[in-house]
Design a protein around this nucleic acid. Structure first.
Length: 476
RNA sequence: GGCCCGAUGGCGGAGUGGUGACGCAGCGGACUGCAAAUCCGUGCACCCGAGUUCGAUUCUCGGUCGGGCCUCCA
């Protein structure tokens, strides 16, 4: 099954062929760690985590090398550190930890490498030196600038002809620039701000050179896939490309596929209704299960803009509830059956293949979701038909299919009890036992009273043939 | 001003030149002590105009509306 990916550079979906199938390389621009990250910052995290998973599936887990950088040198970091009167490392470590914890809660695997600017300074300085040596950069007034005139293909990725960019420029051009489009590779630090030594004087690197140097160091150029948000196409990725190519004698390739995820639209006041303008992933994760937020982030195709609001997350939660209910019912049914392994379930297998095919078609998650529901329906039908072997194999396939995308990783019972602590669980179990006793004597008023009591605890009971089950109605 | 995207039912959102994905929500029925869940059934769409075509939601052109980028925001 071939994997097809849409490439921003060629503006077409093409079959993906890694340079070396035993070492597939992926780089994604990561966060600047100066605060808790906005939910929009996690769209690329989840999207490219999905790509990482798909690549691992196709080429083998060990064959895929995924680097996502961390920008830990930045004006906003400096400002925050000054406000708190602490070294920047205190700030960056604090928010990097929070970022990694949130990413994990969203089901994102840890990238193979997570390079930091502060730990890549030698490679950055070396690359700037290489660019000067190649006549693609020049020093002026304490700065080092990239000479965009030295790269004939400048503008090719974003589709912006040079002259138009100059015409449209709405920023004052620094006097030391030879050309308005030239950008900073190295600049002097301001007073009391962190600085590093370089042949051009103490200072710090420009934003774009960081990524190019980190790619070179972590993965080695050229790489197979470079990803990031659509807003980074210009100037960031355009500049990265120019640096990467020019630092290698102007002949080097940089990335064979460029992938960009669409924007997450927050829609103004819409969030205020029940979420109270919650926009930080960190806060959202306190209100909803990570998988529900992950589902919401993947509910549209990654290249499309995604409208983010509370309804979307609630619908996502409901969709997952449905899948977990199937798993729960299947597990309940199988508990009373003898184990049956190794049975082929062709119908369910076809759905599993459809999930894979959708993912291989440029990460078409909506279609993959549809196939997942088809598969769930097969399992449901098998339960109704009391066909233990079909249930067992179908359930395994459903879990596996969800697992391809980082879903259905929780035990169904635990999923429905998310948010309940042990104390609540004990109380609920006791109340349900009382209610069962009342129901046994057909004492309906008492049974309904207890149900009301449970409802007050945000718990919903469901009477089934093999006893009652319960779930947390709503989190938050 | 320049460049680039998008417009599908109550909501989210795929896809296709001709049988109206999928999920959420709604409605009717079954089941249930009543519910919930589940099952059966059901309604609801392809921004506007022109063109190409036997036939367009799908292709082309124009328009309207919405969004992104234009030197450090994913």
């Amino acid at each position: 099954m071939t994997l097809s990916l849409y490439d921003t550079m060629s503006r077409a979906k093409r079959p993906f062929t890694p340079k070396d199938p035993s070492r597939v390389t992926l780089y994604v621009c990561g966060p600047t760690v100066y605060n808790f990250a906005h939910i929009g910052n996690f769209r690329p995290v989840v999207v490219f985590d999905l790509l990482f998973r798909v690549l691992r599936e196709v080429y083998g887990a060990d064959a895929v090398k995924y680097a996502a950088n961390v920008t830990d040198v930045d004006d906003k970091i400096n400002r925050k550190a000054a406000e708190e009167g602490v070294p920047i490392s205190v700030i960056t470590n604090r928010y990097l930890d929070a970022y990694n914890a949130d990413a994990a809660a969203l089901g994102a695997l840890r990238p193979t490498f997570q390079p930091r600017v502060t730990e890549t300074m030698d490679a950055i300085v070396k690359m700037i030196g290489d660019l000067i040596h190649q006549n693609s950069a020049y020093a002026a007034e304490g700065h080092v600038l990239f000479d965009t005139q030295s790269f004939a293909d400048y503008g090719k990725l974003s589709g912006r002809p040079m002259d138009e960019m100059i015409a449209g420029a709405r920023v004052d051009v620094a006097p030391y620039k030879r050309h308005p489009a030239d950008f900073v590779l190295w600049k002097p630090s301001k007073e009391n701000e962190p600085e590093w030594d370089s042949p051009w004087g103490p200072g710090r690197p420009g934003w774009h050179i960081e990524c190019t140097a980190m790619i070179e160091e972590a993965l080695g150029l050229p790489i197979d896939i470079h990803g990031g948000g659509i807003d980074l196409v210009f100037p960031h990725h355009e500049n990265e490309l120019a640096q990467g190519v020019c630092s290698g004698h102007g002949e080097r390739e940089y990335a064979q596929v460029w992938m960009h995820n669409g924007f997450l639209n927050m829609g103004d006041e819409k969030m205020s209704k029940s979420l109270g303008n919650v926009a930080l992933a960190h806060d959202l994760l306190g209100l909803y299960p990570g998988e529900a937020i992950r589902w919401a982030l993947l509910s549209g195709h990654y290249r499309q803009p995604l409208e983010w609001n509370d309804t979307l997350i609630e619908q996502s939660k409901s969709a997952l509830d449905r899948l977990y209910r199937v798993l729960d019912d299947a597990g309940r049914f199988l508990a009373g059956e003898s184990a049956a392994g190794g049975f082929d379930n062709p119908a369910a297998q076809a759905d599993f293949a459809a999930v894979e095919a959708a993912l291989h078609d440029d990460l078409n998650t909506p279609t993959a979701f549809a196939a997942l529901f088809q598969l769930a329906d097969k399992v449901r039908a098998a339960v109704m038909a009391q066909d233990a072997r079909s249930v067992a194999s179908g359930r395994d396939l459903l879990v596996a299919a969800g697992g391809l995308m980082g879903f259905l990783t929780t035990d169904p019972q635990a999923w429905f009890h998310t948010g309940a602590d042990d104390d609540l669980k004990t109380r609920v179990e006791a109340l349900i036992a009382d209610r069962q006793a009342a129901r046994a004597t057909k004492n309906w008023p008492e049974a309904d009273r207890i149900r009301g009591e449970l409802a007050a605890l945000n718990v919903e009971v469901m009477d089934g043939p093999s006893g009652a089950t319960w779930r947390i109605k709503e989190q938050a």
